[in-house]
Amino acid sequence: MPLNFVLFLGALLFCAGLYTVITKKNTIMVLVGVELMLNAANVNLVAFSRFDAVGIQGQVFALFVITVAAAEAAIGLALVVKVYQHFQTANIDEINELKG
């Protein structure tokens, strides 16, 4: 597969993720958007890894990203549960008591 296709897929995933993060109101959907953006980076990293002169740094990086993203998602979902206990909603627009 030519490199361009893969990079295009990465860019598409990134834009879709960013769009989701910006437009969606539900916190869980926002986290899904973040996940899409991380995977866009992963696709890029793995694709570029083929041209690495030294080793497979890109693929290793992608593995780290997957692991860290899992940890972050775990914290994120725990926080959503916590917020839901307090606010009875996961809608970002309704979680707005801190202002100034």
Binding site: V30, L31, K82
Partner: peptide, 21 residues
């Protein structure tokens, strides 16, 4: 604190994803 935490996490996760890209 839960409100501040979720805002922090969403900003942080999104900006680290952008950084990663």
């Amino acid at each position: 604190r839960s409100e501040a935490g979720i805002k922090y996490l969403i900003f942080g996760a999104a900006s680290s994803a952008i950084m990663l890209y």
